[in-house]
Write a protein that binds this DNA or RNA. Structure first.
Length: 276
DNA sequence: CCTGAAACCTGTCTGC
DNA sequence: TGCAGACAGGTTTCAG
């Protein structure tokens, strides 16, 4: 589930209200429960819980695929969902999801639950968010990331464009779905060497990345399988999971290949392979 | 620097 | 119905 648009959807719902629940900003923690300790990276699970008791949530935001919950002077609770799960608000008395790894009970009776079936997700509580987020590349919507700057960074890399776009040190937020969708929109083959792209292609690619992310956010993310619900972007996929079906642009069957160990979907006609 | 393999997990779906 | 195998939105570590 969780790439930038899904994480953004969760962050906005927690901060502003949404997905059927009002905002939790201003709520005070009355009790903490950790059900699967390895999910807590730092500090120790006991210290983690002790720090959060009585803390008041002051803000929620997103950086890349990380969710950041601010608790005033208590610090920053940072969450990464990895391959599955959600951060959900439950009204008083409602049972928590089956795969809840930790939960915060608020003084008003509501519960914030970290639902993470595959146990890949991780949580940190830190004084400085840079401890966790410091390695991340630029946000895709950062105005400082101009087409010229993006092109210059591509020029410095010789690897395949798809794994590079998914490298969070290069750019923060893209995952398997949105990368394939952006490359199709920009008409670039996923195995193209990054430094073989022209300035025009770089500009087109950056615009395509921003367009698919914007559409994904507007659709509240994508829902696939049982992992996540609520979003509708899956109805707008142009290539992802469409192998054998006609490209909407040229009617050539969409192909599925492996690139960087990930299933990759592309149109062989709209996205021809190129070398320098 | 770049690539590929493996590991971390649970659940769903497909085919025999 | 049972069961084996493939596959899944991510990241890290290691070998070459």
């Amino acid at each position: 589930m969780p790439e930038l648009p899904e994480v953004e959807t969760i962050a906005r719902a927690l901060r502003d209200g949404g997905r059927g629940q009002p905002s939790i900003v201003g709520a005070r923690v009355a009790a903490v429960e950790v059900r699967w300790q390895p999910v807590i990276v730092t500090p120790s699970p006991a210290a983690w819980a002790a720090h959060l008791i009585d803390a008041v949530l002051t803000d929620v935001w997103r950086r890349g695929k990380y969710l950041v919950l601010e608790w005033g002077k208590t610090g920053y609770l940072i969450v990464h969902l990895r391959m599955s799960g959600d951060l959900v608000v439950l009204p008083p008395g409602q049972p928590v999801p089956k795969h809840t790894r930790w939960l915060l009970r608020f003084a008003d009776g509501r519960v914030l639950a970290f639902d993470n079936p595959r146990k890949f997700g991780r949580t940190w509580l830190v004084a400085d968010p840079a401890e966790v987020l410091g390695h991340l590349g630029p946000e895709p919507f950062d105005p400082a990331l101009t087409p010229a700057r993006f092109f210059a960074r591509l020029q410095q890399r010789r690897g395949q464009i798809k794994p590079l776009l998914m490298n969070q040190r290069f750019l923060a937020g893209l995952g398997n779905i949105y990368t394939d969708e952006a490359l199709h929109r920009a008409q670039i083959h996923p195995r193209t060497a990054a430094n073989c792209l022209s300035a025009e292609q770089a500009q087109r690619l950056l615009a395509a990345i921003r367009a698919v992310l914007r559409e994904g956010i507007a659709a509240n993310g994508a829902s696939i399988d049982w992992m996540y619900r609520g979003g509708t972007f899956q109805n707008t996929f142009r290539v992802y999971h469409r192998q054998g079906e006609p490209c909407y642009t040229c009617y050539t069957p969409v192909e599925r290949i492996q690139v960087g160990q990930r299933s990759t979907f592309f149109c062989p006609r709209c996205q021809p392979f190129q070398t320098c």
